[in-house]
């Protein structure tokens, strides 16, 4: 049996993001599948919800987000929002230092899972969503979906209802981060064009490996 591969790991609710320290490759695998193959890996440092033991040095998700975004964005001041499967968190950088942060923790309103489930369930291409759909207030994921299906039952198209729902989630995200002119986005929802275009400000996706970049920086500088 070959020696376990040394990796850095961001193990979220839905997916594990992996950086292989031997060959510098990256991979994304479903978290449930990754957890079954734990013995194949030598985890040097980790972040994320889904592993609490045997996971090398643990780094707080917001710390990894801050470090990762600082290594990917050159601006002195910026805000980065991480939209994960389960919750949403952000850090605000001023003069290249963390000046603010928050984490939507209690309610599923923002959860990437809901957005992913809905877009898959309704099987709608992002290009087909209307750009002028009114925003649905999304108090939480379930109440938001109730309003969405209410709209459909009153005769609105599925596309319009979904666009309104995504707007509602994006609006909540913008409220959480304090409505900066430009917003950097991290996490699985970066790949969801419909979601990215639901924001009302310049929104720049950084991809799914921002926390991994943070871990790489922290690991290479041995600041853990």
């Amino acid at each position: 049996m070959s020696a376990p591969s040394p990796i850095l790991l961001d193990c979220g609710t839905g997916y594990a993001k992996i950086f292989n320290l031997e060959d510098s490759t990256r991979a994304i695998v479903p978290a449930r599948r990754f957890i079954k193959k734990l013995s194949e890996y030598d985890i040097k440092a980790s972040t994320g919800h889904n592993l609490s033991s045997g996971a090398g040095v643990r780094v707080n998700e917001l710390v990894a987000l801050a470090e990762g975004s600082l290594s990917m964005v050159d601006e002195p001041d910026f805000t980065v929002l991480d939209c994960g499967a389960r919750d949403v968190k952000y850090v605000q950088i001023r003069n290249r230092r963390v000046a603010g942060m928050d984490w939507n923790t209690e309610c599923g309103a923002f959860a990437g899972q809901v957005v992913e489930l809905l877009t898959r369930y309704l099987d709608i291409e992002p290009e087909n969503l209307p750009s002028d759909a009114p925003r649905i207030p999304v108090v939480c994921g379930v109440l938001g979906m109730t309003s969405m299906f209410d709209m459909i039952s009153k005769g609105k198209s599925h596309e319009e209802a979904l666009a309104g729902f995504l707007r509602g989630v994006a609006f909540n995200c913008e409220t959480l981060v304090g409505r900066p002119d430009r917003l950097y986005l991290s996490g699985g929802l970066c790949d969801n064009k419909a979601f990215v275009s639901a924001f009302t400000r310049e929104t720049i996706p950084l991809g799914r490996f921002v926390l991994i970049e943070g871990l790489r920086k922290i690991y290479s500088e041995k600041i853990i």
């Binding site: 919800h49 917001l62 968190k89 209690e106």
Partner: peptide, 25 residues
């Protein structure tokens, strides 16, 4: 400029991590 934390019953992993990050920063 503090941290708002809302918990229903037991603290979740995210709430714990959010407070830990606030204290660490």
């Amino acid at each position: 400029g503090g941290l708002y934390v809302e918990v229903d019953k037991m603290m979740s992993h995210s709430t714990r991590a959010k407070i830990e990050a606030f204290l660490e920063f």
